[in-house]
Design a protein around this nucleic acid. Structure first.
Lengths: 346, 346
DNA sequence: CTGAAAGCGCTTACAG
DNA sequence: CTGAAAGCGCTTACAG
């Protein structure tokens, strides 16, 4: 059935190295695992042979023997390819530095068989740890399942869940408050919001942070000024049309992500409402599009690369150290002011 | 050093299944590998036990024994997170269906040690096959290295390279011709282009396709009307400023990707040049941003998901079938006309 | 149609 | 500081 098997390349094995160096396999293994109990000269000889042969220990053989796979998994949703792409790069970077490889496992938040799917993935691959990205990280069953399977996991989310052995908590509520303060400081009073899907913490945290900061400034966010979107451009269009055709239309709109902010900008342009003279717009994510629109969009930046690196470091610490859990790590976000927000025009 | 090893979960193994089913390990293995030589009743018993125990065969043990890893790798560059993200989803989808997992391996096109890096990756992980995305796929050394390592690879690129056992060739030259024809049909004669980095085939193919189609319409693309960018927004800004401050400025501009098209749009707006009344703009990629700008950008769509799926199917065919190479697969692209292009205003 | 044995390439107690 | 043996969880000829 597979004629190629016959001509598979015979990569150098640990046995080849041992023979060439005139030592036992055990000693080569010690060098690979940086055991201190190897003579300096022996070590140097072996390292020379390894370099010569271009020997790379087989991860699966190491894994089988050592009960470690040297594989990390990233569990991600299907939305927001840009955010996922950037996070992945940060994760892979730290993985490579530490001798791990990265397996991607996209799942659908709606999938009723998600738990089984994830369990089978863990059993098949024996990943050493998982990094769970938002919004999948918010599904309460996931960290609990992973705990039962004894696989360390690091969650990245806007709200802490004690079921994760380690978490990176992004201060999205505070960030949304910063947007509100920014609008208020520009003199706006009629302020509205397009939220993400309120079933996600990311959306409800942003909404609450925004609302609370406005209340501190004695500004109400009436129901007619709050529209729920689902983070898509289309939902942003619908929400914006609703808000901007109100008799008493807002002078500032905060969208729960940049994509919906782009939609608000488009609707404003179609309605000949000048941005930022007649309408200020802010988004969330600092995705590439925010700076490519004109006017460029004021937004909230999450330090994605740093988040990814830190999450991965923690995952590896959980695998290699002897702590079963790590304290939460809080990530502060920052407001990036661009041309889409301005003082309220007379 | 690692206290947790002691409490590692004992996932069910093939031995557990064999014992519970009262058969030999060999027979369970036959069921796992869908061998026809198993009695119907025996098979059913074993399948029942497997479901009961939630048994999942360990990929690494299978791999070690069968000289297969059930791992596919995707080699990707660092740019264009959106395109990479979409392609990855298509790849994973087909992988899962066929029992493979996906390992991501980002590399830098500039890295002088790229070949060694990739070789070590292949030796460590024993991936069964690789899918190589553009622009990494254009580096001539890569398919040749992979051939020496006897690992099947599928390249995705704008130009065929016979060193790949299988290729998906995207008809980017033809697509660029379609943009030129579109401009011409709208009455434009002063037509310019912002190219990608000309060291990449993706960029030179687009440039040539565009130029050739214009020549067919007796329109010249003078040197002053061609600016080289590097696919980034900033490079697009610089190119657009150059083109739009020309005494005889163009009435239509084709940008080598949507990001640079967005930059052209921004510069036009800053210079109060109405799009599309005074200037038509087209991009390439149909990335999410193309439809989010206003006016929405006319662009070329690559069927990314279908490309990813087809590449993965071919990779798996190379692994499981007995063909050492497959005929090239050509992918036609399509022109998506939106609001950024219009008949030449008087 | 089914099974006992060897082996994939490593690591890990156990000796020395 | 170094080595011979067993074993990780599977598959693969080889027998029957």
């Amino acid at each position: 059935m597979n004629g190629r098997l016959a001509i598979l390349p015979h990569y150098a094995t640990i046995t080849d190295v041992a023979r060439a160096a005139g030592v036992s396999v055990r000693t080569v293994s010690r060098v690979l695992n940086k055991s201190p109990k190897v003579g300096e000269e022996t070590r140097r000889t072996i390292e020379g042979v390894i370099a010569n042969l271009g020997f790379q220990p087989s991860l699966r053989a190491r894994g089988l023997a050592a009960r470690r796979s040297f594989l990390l998994g990233v569990v991600q949703g299907y939305q927001n390819a840009h955010v996922v792409g950037v996070l992945q790069h940060g994760i892979v970077e730290v993985c490579s530095g530490a001798g791990y490889e990265l397996l991607v496992h996209p799942v659908s938040v709606q999938d009723p068989r998600l738990a089984d799917n994830l369990r089978d993935f863990v059993r098949r691959t024996h990943v050493d740890a998982l990094v769970v990205l938002p919004p999948v990280s918010e599904i309460a069953a996931i960290p609990r399942l992973l705990a039962r399977l004894s696989v360390p996991s690091v969650g990245i989310a806007a709200v802490r869940d004690p079921a994760y052995p380690a978490m990176l908590v992004t201060a999205e509520r505070d960030a949304a408050s910063m947007v509100a303060d920014h609008f208020v400081s520009l003199g706006h009073r009629r302020i509205a919001m397009v939220t993400g899907p309120m079933k996600f913490y990311s959306a409800s945290e942003r909404e609450q942070g925004f609302r609370i900061a406005l209340e501190r400034a004695d500004i109400l966010l009436p129901p007619s000024y709050v529209r729920e979107g689902n983070y898509s451009f289309e939902s942003g269009l619908a929400a914006a049309i609703g808000l901007l055709s109100l008799p008493d239309r807002p002078t500032a709109i905060f969208a729960g992500n940049d994509i919906m902010a782009a939609a608000v900008l488009k609707v404003a342009r179609d309605l000949k409402i000048d941005v930022p003279d007649k309408l200020s717009i802010a988004g969330f994510d600092d995705s590439d599009i925010a700076s490519m629109l004109s006017p460029a969009i004021t937004t909230i930046r999450r330090p994605l690369i740093e988040i990814a690196r830190e999450a991965t470091r923690r995952a590896i610490t959980l695998v290699e150290g002897d702590a079963h859990s790590l304290p939460d790590h809080h990530i502060a976000l920052s407001l990036i002011v661009r041309q889409s927000t301005a003082p309220l025009g007379n």
